[in-house]
């Protein structure tokens, strides 16, 4: 079942991120849980969607997660290049976090532009591997492909193309029942009851 990227983003926004509020407030009770209390200048963890909202209202400063650092990301990029499979990313939703945080708080993140570039490079390398992997899966006798460590956004990128393609392949492999038996789509003349009064009716 294919999701819209916005829906994947919606799920990712629940992830906690650290902020430094500029206001004071008691605990706030939300449907999804409690947040706060907020004391100006003291770091506190909140879901990503709240962090973005507060930042846009200039009520906080965002603290980038540890992995959002140019050198660390360069290392990851080299690892990903070397590896035949997919490396484990430091965040389940690295692409979404990057987009949201760099989008609203690039002033709070050192070397934001470089970070954007490296993350995009990593994304491109992984997407390219996914495509080769998918092609091998469709072509080959293999019945599975290793997709460990893929994030949801990456997995969603091959939907619905891959599942639909595999369904069509399945249809082709399925052999029809042998000629002489009835098909489901139409009735053969020989099976039609012309004289229904001869057959007892079933209720």
């Amino acid at each position: 079942m294919a999701m819209d990227p916005e829906e994947v983003e919606f799920l990712a926004e629940k992830k906690l991120v650290s902020i430094i509020p500029t206001f004071n407030s008691n605990v706030i009770h939300l449907i999804s849980g409690d947040i706060g209390p907020f004391r100006a200048s003291l770091p506190v963890n909140v879901p990503l969607w709240i962090a973005v909202n507060l930042k846009q209202q200039q009520k906080c400063k965002i603290q980038p997660p540890d992995w959002m650092d140019v050198d660390r990301l360069q290392e990851l990029k080299e690892e990903e290049k070397m590896s035949r499979t997919f490396i484990k990313m430091p965040s389940e939703h690295y692409m979404i976090e990057a987009k949201l945080l760099l989008g609203c708080a690039s002033d709070d993140i050192p070397r934001a532009d470089e970070i954007r570039t490296v993350i995009k490079d990593i994304w491109d390398i992984r997407m390219s591997k996914i495509r080769s992997s998918v092609d091998v899966l469709v072509k080959g006798a293999g019945t599975y492909a290793a997709v460990d460590n893929l994030t949801l956004m990456e997995i969603n990128s091959i939907r619905p193309l891959l599942p639909h393609a595999l369904d069509q392949l399945y249809r082709m492999r399925k052999t029809r029942k042998s000629a002489g038996t009835q098909s489901q789509n139409s009735s053969t003349f020989l099976s039609m009851n012309v004289n229904s009064k001869n057959t007892p009716s079933k209720s």
Partner: peptide
Amino acid sequence: VLERRLYTDGHRSRSKLNAWLVESGV
């Protein structure tokens, strides 16, 4: 026809992803 259908489904989904990558609002 069958390939075209697969292409349409895949392309639509990819366009959404590309649009998402480019923009910052919804």
